[in-house]
Design a protein around this nucleic acid. Sequence first.
DNA 1: TTCGGATGTTAGTCATCATTAACGAAATCG
DNA 2: CGATTTCGTTAATGATGACTAACATCCGAA
Lengths: 198, 198
Amino acid sequence: MTTVSSSTRSRGNRRAEILDAAARLFAARGFHGVSIEDIGGAVGVSGPALYRHFNGKDALLSEMLLDVSSRLRESAGAVVTSASGPDETLDALLHVQITFAIEQPALITVHDRELGNVPEPQRRQIRRLQRLYVEEWVTVLAELHPECPAARLRAATHAAFGLLNSTPHSAGELPAQEMRPLLHAMARAAINAAVKDH
Amino acid sequence: MTTVSSSTRSRGNRRAEILDAAARLFAARGFHGVSIEDIGGAVGVSGPALYRHFNGKDALLSEMLLDVSSRLRESAGAVVTSASGPDETLDALLHVQITFAIEQPALITVHDRELGNVPEPQRRQIRRLQRLYVEEWVTVLAELHPECPAARLRAATHAAFGLLNSTPHSAGELPAQEMRPLLHAMARAAINAAVKDH
DNA sequence: TTCGGATGTTAGTCATCATTAACGAAATCG
DNA sequence: CGATTTCGTTAATGATGACTAACATCCGAA
């Protein structure tokens, strides 16, 4: 059979390298605050070399966000289908989001800031994935508290995301070992408070 | 006595109008994604007219962020000096932040995204005000839980801000009447969970 | 009424930047 | 060994955008 050619491997590596560097730069300075030259420079090549790997700056951002929202939704889907009970499922969802927020703070940042710069029709698809992800959470919360109106559950979910995605702001305050359970406990408590008495 | 001349009044209004429109645009598309023309257009004048009111785009952003961080710190200072007890003080701080987040979502958004685009030396001053604001929270939390390490309190504070500042994301999910107590309850519960057992 | 400042306007100017062109070297494959 | 693909490079090119200049207009005050 055909083995993975080294060209395929290096191409993939270079692409990933570029996506990674671009994510960091976009998170720090915003999509329009970063030039193609900047991104190329960050991976040791110069400017237009990027066009060997992506169709353009927009395509780069599109792929980045599509990848993030796919992975999040996929993880959430896996968690939900292998669920034992709603309570454990919620903990597992928290685990997914916390892992992502701690390990990929730049991607998380770009993910919730730069959707507006993605051109249609990718925009629509990313929106769809984001919505599905939120709905996984809302569904689990609704199982736990069927009497709570969906709008409230959705607002609570967004608030929980805001809490969890604060990691880029408190970078360095605490080691990940402590940050992880702290975020879990805070988010869990916040969600419980949100659905209490409804 | 000298009355406020109409020129002063209209100048102030126009300046405020510009800052308001610019905040909304910056929040939606990012600092570099908005042109001077865009901002002018949003208030019914065209492009270079802005230079009659601000020294440039950077100065506009600087003033916007300086104003926000001053107001937040000032409010927090007022709350803390007129405090009855740490518990009520924390509630009052929550009230301040929630009011701001609900009434000025665009400003809050710009405030925590665009500091990187403010030139020195204003950058330093805004940073200073932001830090002082955080420290007001940390001080109050430390009074409530002296055994909790400051780093953890700081991380918890940032997480609470993330939760409260999620309003732009859940815009329209709930009316402000419901959003307000929901955010208060969630943030309060999250903070309590953060300091428990420390 | 006349002067001056405040506030706009339109038409440059100069940088920056995304994108494309044209061209080279290294590696893969026949 | 060639030949083709892959991955880079350095120069255009064309748009966009911040900022400045030169020129109105309006309005309050002397």
